[in-house]
Design a protein around this nucleic acid. Structure first.
Lengths: 144, 144
DNA sequence: TAAATCTCTATTGACTCTATAGAGATTAAT
DNA sequence: ATTAATCTCTATAGAGTCAATAGAGATTTA
């Protein structure tokens, strides 16, 4: 299951993606629009800033905007920041590979083979959906 | 990521699936073979017993065996017990549907639409891989 | 200079995860 | 019957994570 943090992150980013002008939006406004605790959202946006998913503008009339075009930010990009690897075991993670704690032999592990296929299936979906596409679709539906 | 509990559960069940005779295997033996803390494994097997994934035989010379043919127990069956729903949000869970805590309108939620596709992709993989098939493949590979 | 905003770190309470413990119930062998 | 081996059940504990809050600091604009 997604953490609350991931859920908040996606909601906040979809709001930014929905602003076609690309002008900075203040934390307070995002928090209000997406119904997210303001101080919690601050931390989340700060995390999303490190890998460049958002960009910040400090000082009076500052705020946050997307770090690159909304169509180039995938759900996978976001969830990797807020919830870690997409894979179900570290041994099949592409972006954050690690051996499982007590693995006897990765080459013959049947669990691993299944998890590898599951990871690819999940990643294929989450990599191919962008904030831009989803925001546009939501706008057409009257949400956003 | 899978919990340690899920990981242990799959390892233990693959050992049971690998015993072609279907005779009960004692907790201590499974724990030893799969390198799982014995008392922890007790709890896990007890949980797997409730939905009928394993069957227990009490008393002297007791033990555990699979509750139905290994080919009829999917990875999804197991993981739902030990880690809960496969879905990334409760609102797209097929087996354990629940509305997201602060959802404004499920019908137009763009996040939900993506998560629904992701769930189906993951489920398709995990439902289609059985303990029987994976145990057989591991046996051929020399593991198990 | 002042006000509005983002930045950074710390803290808290609740909860979950992993593991261990031990007394109880059941069964098979003797 | 008795004993020993096994599963059953509930409790507990320590570590860690999650969600949220707090407040002082840095930066920018008006």
């Amino acid at each position: 299951m997604l953490s609350q943090k991931s859920h908040y992150a996606l909601r906040a980013l979809l709001i930014l993606a929905g602003r076609s002008d690309g002008q900075p939006v203040q934390i307070a406004e995002i928090a209000d629009a997406a119904n997210i605790p303001k101080k919690f959202l601050e931390q989340i946006l700060l995390e999303l800033k490190k890998p460049g998913i958002v960009r910040s503008h400090r000082g009076r009339s500052g705020g946050y905007s997307l770090g690159r075009p909304a169509k180039d930010i995938s759900f996978a990009d976001v969830l990797r920041v807020t919830d870690g690897p997409l894979a179900l075991t570290p041994c099949v993670s592409v972006m954050a590979y690690r051996k499982c704690d007590d693995c006897f032999d990765e080459a013959v592990c049947g669990i691993r083979k299944v998890m590898a296929v599951a990871r690819d299936a999940t990643a294929e979906v989450l990599e191919s959906r962008s904030l831009g596409a989803v925001a546009a679709q939501m706008r057409r539906a009257g949400a956003l």
